[in-house]
């Protein structure tokens, strides 16, 4: 098992390296940091522009291989370079990643657990009302773009505040930002305030993840339910629930484990929309701004962040795979 995991880890690290390099090279060749200075009136002298671009390693007159070499060299010293505004990318990511991770962790953990539970339950109760409700829920949710869902939740939150009479400064659910400005972050009040900000955005991501996992888990579970080994398990005297959980769910989880890694990148995109609608200053917003500002180093930095997240998710799903499927452990 250790060898299997080690091999997967090496493979995943390789994929991260390649995908981040591709993203850097694409960004360095397709974005035009120079355009930032071209529109100015009066136009700055070319030497000044070149010097400014050289300072952040984004001068398009330098060959892209040289720029890439410098960027990789910085990366080896854990330095992601400077943003187009001359600020360290490390600082920016260090501040923003916790904002996004809060959303992503809640969304992925709550979403996958609840989704798997809902899907398995729906499969066991196939064609009963509970199953129909779950199927319709995931079907409709997966047909709504994240943007629209986020706007709906936001407006529902505002409506709920108004109905319950929270029209002043203190609200039941907040719909903008991650904390009310001016509150001490680590005070009791500040924590509750942050929680009230967190509810709606994380609910959006969780609902989507539940719909996604629920649908696949239901199908995977249905495939297992008709199998002979489950009947044997019950025939030898196991209780139905026990047989369903230890023999049925466990087998049905194996294909789901591989989904987890791919879903994570999707979740990040979903978080980008959620951040945008709810006014959070996270990694998603950073990425969108960086592309619009032609900020090559920031774009590469966010891509690396996402790639590492996918790597961690991928490795976790490999571990889960090995733990669930004895064939992997033995061979």
């Amino acid at each position: 098992m250790a060898r299997f995991l080690l091999r997967r880890l090496v493979y995943l690290v390789l994929l991260v390296i390649v995908s981040t390099s591709v993203a850097y090279l694409l960004a360095a060749t397709q974005l035009h940091p120079r355009s930032r200075y071209e529109g100015r009136n009066p136009p700055p002298p070319p030497e000044v522009v070149d010097a400014a671009l050289d300072a952040v390693n984004m001068n398009d007159k330098t060959p892209v291989t040289v720029r890439f070499g410098r960027w990789v060299e910085g990366l080896l010293h854990a330095d992601l370079g400077l943003t187009i505004e001359n600020q360290p990318v490390n600082d920016e990511i260090g501040r923003r990643m916790w904002v996004s991770l809060r959303l992503l962790l809640i969304g992925s953990i709550a979403g996958s657990l609840l989704g798997v539970a809902a899907g398995a339950y729906g499969a066991v109760k196939q064609y009963r009302p509970a199953d129909h409700v779950l199927t319709i829920f995931s079907f409709v949710t997966l047909s709504i773009p994240t943007v629209v869902l986020a706007v709906l939740f936001k407006n529902a939150g505002i409506g709920l505040n108004n109905v319950l009479g929270f029209t002043g400064n203190t609200k039941l659910l907040y719909t903008t930002g991650e904390i009310t400005p001016g509150l001490a972050i680590w005070s009791w009040e500040g924590l509750i305030n942050r929680l009230a900000h967190l509810v709606l955005p994380s609910l959006v991501l969780t609902v989507i993840a539940i719909a996604f996992y629920g649908r696949y888990q239901r199908n995977a579970m249905l495939d297992v339910l008709g199998s002979d080994f489950l009947r044997t398990a019950q025939a030898k005297g196991l209780r139905r629930t026990r047989a369903l959980v230890t023999h049925g769910l466990r087998t049905a989880l194996i294909p789901m484990a591989t989904f987890f890694a791919y879903e994570f990148a999707l979740l990040f995109v979903g978080a980008t929309f959620t951040e945008k609608i709810f006014g959070w200053h996270g990694m998603g917003e950073y990425f969108v701004d960086a592309v619009t500002k032609s900020d090559v180093n920031s774009v590469a930095g966010v891509t690396l962040f996402v790639a590492v997240l996918v790597l961690i998710a991928g490795f976790l799903s490999d571990v889960a795979y090995a733990a669930l499927d004895p064939r992997v452990r033995v061979s």
């Binding site: 994929l15 591709v22 996918v310």
Partner: peptide, 19 residues
């Protein structure tokens, strides 16, 4: 295929959008 699956399509298309 694995590489394309790891490359977040949203990010790559966004990077290419000025093109």
């Amino acid at each position: 295929i694995d590489l394309l699956l790891v490359l977040p399509s949203f990010l790559i298309i966004a990077i290419l959008s000025p093109t």
